[in-house]
Design a protein around this nucleic acid. Structure first.
Length: 286
RNA sequence: GGUGCGUUGGCCGAGGGGCUAGGCACAGGUCUGCAAAACCUGCUACAGUGGUUCGAUUCCGCUACGCACCU
């Protein structure tokens, strides 16, 4: 009976400790599902597990990709599912996955439709147009190429418009025609456990953790990544605020406050993402 | 004690006799290959009290508080 146990929850709830205990109990490695801890160039700001924690349990998808290679939920689905199959085949009955990237988790659980991956050149040129011409122009083109998508996607969201448009342009097919809501069959059973805490407590932990990151040297880490600030992977809470500080746009106290606030916002969005997933079993943590 | 100025929602902040500024926070939400991203929605306040007026947060008086100056 192959079973995938997914430990999820907002940032800073305490997933790492919880999942390590669970992994040890089942003799499972931990398959991380975190869109930022996957990058080797960041560690303090992404709250990667400590050396001891990594030594205690084998972790996958922790700092094994580079910010220079664009990573996506689609790639994660491919890599993670392949890894899971392999580990199950090797004899694991229960595997533990843990992370906070809802989109990535869903990609593993339900699968994405077979859209073509983004073509970076096309993506870049569309981004350029978004900045010069504005969304309206792209919207109109989408309305012409794929009226269905125009009606259903979030037209105010430039990123969404670009994605739909790029698929149309790349394939000559409508973006909407790819959508079949796959719910791919996986060879294993899935159980999702959500770790929860009272909002107030969660926010306190977040604020405290940010201060701790600064003590641990977040500034130096961010300064070293300043040249890479334009990379998609560097659009990460904890770094962009510091980049502004290095630019002299804010003072340090303000930057730290913003990191705390933006992390709280992030946590709230995570909660909102999982709010509609009725299959999650929520467990309050103490 | 006197004179002048000010008092706007959790915070910042514009305005001004009838037409709910805006921003931030906060709350809720969207999400099919950038997702720690991007985007959407909600939040009707003008210190208190009399008066003028058809109608006052906006005008006038008084009270309270704050600031400045004078004695």
């Amino acid at each position: 009976m192959r079973k995938l146990l997914i430990i999820l929850g907002p940032t800073a709830v305490g997933k790492t400790d919880y999942s390590i205990d669970l992994a040890l109990k089942y003799g499972s490695p931990i398959i991380s599902c975190d869109s930022r801890q996957i990058y080797r160039e960041m560690s303090i700001g992404t709250a990667v597990p400590s050396a001891e924690q990594l030594a205690a349990v084998k972790h996958y998808f922790i700092q094994d990709h580079s910010i220079h290679d664009i990573y996506t939920a689609g790639k994660y689905e491919l890599e993670a599912v392949a890894l899971l199959e392999k580990l199950f085949d090797e004899g694991h009955e229960t595997l533990v996955m843990a992370g906070g990237s809802g989109f990535y988790i869903d990609a593993v659980c339900n699968g994405l439709d077979d859209f073509p991956p983004a073509d970076q050149e096309l993506r870049a040129s569309l981004m350029e147009r978004l900045h010069t011409e504005g969304v309206e122009s792209l919207r109109l083109e989408l309305k012409f190429l794929d009226p269905e998508s125009y009606e259903t996607i979030d037209i105010a969201n430039g990123q969404r418009v670009i994605r739909a448009l790029e698929v149309c342009l790349m394939t000559g097919r409508k973006f909407s025609s790819f959508k079949t809501n796959p719910l791919k069959k996986r060879s294993f059973e899935i159980e999702k456990i959500g770790i929860s805490r009272p909002r107030e407590e969660l926010y306190e932990r977040i604020d405290r953790r940010v201060l701790q990151m600064v003590d641990e040297g977040l500034l130096e880490e961010a300064r070293g990544l300043l040249p890479e600030r334009e990379l998609p992977a560097m659009q990460t809470v904890g770094y962009r605020e510091l980049f502004d500080y290095f630019d002299g746009k804010t003072d340090l106290d303000k930057a730290v406050e913003l990191i705390q606030r933006n992390t709280r916002h992030y946590a709230k969005r995570q909660l909102s993402w999982w709010g509609r997933d009725k299959s999650i079993i929520w467990k309050p943590i103490v």
